[in-house]
Amino acid sequence: MADDDPGEVGDQSQPGGLATWVVLGLAVVLVLGLLSLRCALGPDAARSYPSRTLPPEPLPVLLPPPEMNDEYMPCDDCHEGEPTNPTPRELEDDHEETVLAHGDLWCLRCHDTDQRDNLRLSNGTLVDFEDSWKLCTQCHGQRLEEWKAGVHGKRTGHWWGAKEYWTCVACHDPHSPVFKPIEPKPPPVRPSSITWKPRIEPEETDREEP
């Protein structure tokens, strides 16, 4: 082997016996055949499930507006019997805290001048606070369409079945309808701070305790 003549010709150079070639050839054909058969059959079909349907949907429920509270109490609690000054002006006294940031609307654009615990539609019809969405959607007609279709606003319950439609005031403060920022939940843990070493310690101390 010290001979480094590249032209050396070995004597085992015949390309092999017919028998081995035939056997190998058959094996290759068999494997390829099985492969193509498997390919032709395709992947495992999903499990066949029994036919199943859901019961018919009940009518949706409209979510009532939030309860009256200290911040939002019925107007008549204070204003009952008072004369009405329809001129828009700075809010004062108990209304100093009230933010009115709804376009350039003034109270009486929505609240009825006389029946203060009602809202008044532009055609003069009085509606309860409960049905405030009828008032809102006089201006926000596009939103009404989308709300009815379920694209604007929120629904809870069932995608098929009992549904609650959240009305406008369930989410928006009618006096200041833009969403207020809220505190977000904590950020995720970084992958680099997931470790295994510290987990041994509490476990060992646990074991020592009887």
Binding site: A149, G150, H152, G153, R155, T156, G157, W159, W166, I182
Partner: peptide, 29 residues
């Protein structure tokens, strides 16, 4: 038939869910 949990939790109603094969569903709309 219920909504997913994230859909229920969203405070601004940004999440919509439904049946793509139902032409009247929110998602189809």
């Amino acid at each position: 038939g219920r909504y997913p949990a994230c859909h229920e939790a969203c405070p601004v109603g940004a999440r919509k869910f439904g049946n793509l094969l139902d032409p009247n569903s929110e998602i189809s709309y």
